[in-house]
Amino acid sequence: MGIEIHNPATLPANDNVPGNDYAFCVEMAGQPWFTSKGAMIAYYGNINFEPLGRTSMTAIVAARFSSPLYADDWVLAQGQGKLILGDRGFNINSYDLDDGNLTIRAANLLAFETSLDLKQSIVPGFLTLLGTGKFLASSNGPVMFAEPPLRIDPQALVGWADCPSPSHHFDADWMQSFLGAVRGSMFGANTGEERQSDFTGAGTVLIQSSEKVVHDGHLLKHIESETVALGQNSLRALHASIGARLQN
């Protein structure tokens, strides 16, 4: 069995590395890209990576990246060459927005062109891309596209395009079950059989073919940002609740 050896001439432009769903090659030709920290696994050519807080392209960041909570997790890549991106062995796909509106789990968003605007979604742990351009997203297994109305396991949800944000739907039997309520309060997690994300209206929902969520440290940041509005009594109550859960 032969091993394929790649070089700049054999690597594709803006496509998955041939025979490899877990690596993606971006053609860098002067157009900057926002890339998630740690996504770069290799590159050919002259490419620079600048943290958003210390970049020479402050105008692009100010105009396109409107999510300070996530700014430390991203860099601006610019230059000439072939940039190979990966994400811990997860599948990587490219998507094209055409004057679109797509909300995606922050942990799954890998890179996007600077022609797109990024906003922080009101849904914890998600980001919204607006405009026209290409972006890359990782997933635990291939992605399926589905039309609403539908309900899906929240852990299988990658994102949604051009449709309203989902609401939570709780199974009636689970809601009435004391044991289910205790289990939810102790572990803070429900399966898709107990709680679903309920989508209505027109649009497209992106669903990964696994219930295993990509590790997401962004949700903690969102929760921490929300505690700023809490008073001392609320903070004490939250501290007691977290302490009780840690003991369990």
Results as ranks from 00 to 15, higher is better:
43 Y>A: 10
53 G>F: 02
160 W>A: 06
196 Q>P: 08
48 N>G: 11
91 N>P: 06
128 T>L: 04
139 S>Y: 05
239 H>V: 07
168 H>I: 15
202 A>C: 07
201 G>D: 07
154 P>S: 14
44 Y>M: 04
179 L>H: 10
76 L>F: 01
228 V>M: 08
27 E>A: 14
3 I>C: 03
230 L>S: 03
65 F>C: 04
7 N>R: 08
136 L>G: 03
100 G>F: 11
157 L>M: 15
128 T>V: 08
125 G>M: 04
63 A>F: 12
206 L>Q: 00
147 E>C: 08
219 L>K: 10
103 T>Q: 06
116 L>P: 06
153 D>E: 13
185 S>H: 15
140 N>A: 09
58 T>E: 14
76 L>V: 11
26 V>Y: 01
213 V>L: 09
129 L>N: 11
115 S>I: 07
94 S>P: 05
16 N>K: 00
62 A>E: 13
52 L>V: 02
203 G>F: 10
158 V>C: 09
42 A>C: 08
35 T>F: 03
7 N>D: 15
51 P>K: 06
117 D>C: 15
58 T>V: 12
121 S>R: 05
114 T>F: 04
235 L>A: 04
55 T>N: 09
209 S>V: 01
131 G>Y: 01
65 F>G: 01
102 L>D: 05
56 S>V: 13
16 N>H: 01
50 E>D: 10
219 L>D: 03
187 F>V: 08
239 H>W: 06
86 G>A: 08
81 G>D: 09
239 H>A: 12
125 G>H: 02
239 H>N: 13
224 E>L: 11
216 D>S: 05
